[in-house]
Design a protein around this nucleic acid. Structure first.
Lengths: 168, 168
DNA sequence: TCAAACTGTTTGACTATCAAACAATTCGGC
DNA sequence: GCCGAATTGTTTGATAGTCAAACAGTTTGA
């Protein structure tokens, strides 16, 4: 057999027993903004995904549907840019939505390379059904915040999100 | 060939041309806390990942190293719980860190099922080298926030992160 | 006119994750 | 003490999401 150092175990050691057990965390991690950010984002995403799963949609599909409704006729590349994913990843996403009869690829006379994306009737109905679900989601997320705190949080987050592009 | 409705295109349509181009977004999405949260988290994560890549480590590996140092002798299952990943996902993570000589699996005399995880000398040195990088990362992230705003943001995020378990 | 750029697509790879099953080991109730 | 139930690390297989590179068809621009 190969000298599998893969999961090698050092010889037994009575110490390191960790008998008493303070909760497993790390001070230096817990003090980072990114740490709180990650936990909050995880919780929000899970709530969002669960809410949308009730409608038979994934978060990515919801984003695509809303963007297509607000920007009727946009191309797949534009959609990808807005979603922050590669245009090659847009293909199976739209394939799926099209199979569900929610979205149409419309050939455009003025530029035969691109597909103009549009919602079908069913797709528009799905968006309408989606809106109250989004509102309830938002209310759950902000349940422990006052309206003013909610605004403050969004403002601070948006400032964090600004890349250091135009720096100095 | 199968009637591939996969990427079917509806017949050409001169309209839907989207000639003038307001930026591609959606009002209903941009108004959600989760939207700002996601953007901020994305930016922070990218900065974090880039900073750690300079040390030859992934974010997950950094988390594991810090947790192991702060909780010497913890088991793989405990580490997985602290990181929020399945214990079967811990295996390749530790495999990798062990191959890099940063972590040891120590057999424990008191319970021969578990591996007690410990940093090696090299691992401790890596953690020491990591700390100033973490500090610089945090300073970049909070660059546009006053110290008070930074505290406020963490507080609000932590309140959002609290699950709705004990509700109503 | 024609090279360069862009579009949607296909293919292949990679990462991260979980679920289920397994043997070894420990625990708990009796 | 005994023995079924629970736990640990591991393996294997599946899924999802992503990108990079290459392609043919199309448009643009010099």
């Amino acid at each position: 057999m190969a000298t599998s150092t893969a999961h090698a175990r050092t010889r037994p050691d009575a110490a390191g027993d960790r008998g008493a057990r303070p909760p497993v965390t790390d001070r230096r991690l817990a003090v980072l903004l990114g740490y709180s950010l990650r936990r909050a984002q995880l919780r929000v995403f899970q709530d969002f995904a669960a809410a949308m799963a009730d409608l038979g949609l994934t978060p990515g599909q919801v984003g695509a549907l809303l963007l297509i409704e607000s920007n009727r006729g946009l191309s797949q590349s534009e959609l990808g840019a807005a979603l922050g994913i590669d245009r090659s990843s847009v293909v199976p996403l739209i394939d799926r939505l099209q199979a569900m009869k929610l979205v149409r690829r419309v050939a455009r006379a003025s530029d035969r390379r691109t597909n103009a994306l549009e919602l079908t009737e069913v797709g528009e109905a799905a968006v309408r059904r989606m809106l109250p679900v989004l509102e309830r989601h938002e209310r759950r997320i902000a349940a422990r915040l006052s309206p003013a705190e909610r605004r403050t949080l969004m403002d601070l987050l948006d400032r964090v999100a600004v890349a250091q592009d135009a720096e100095e």
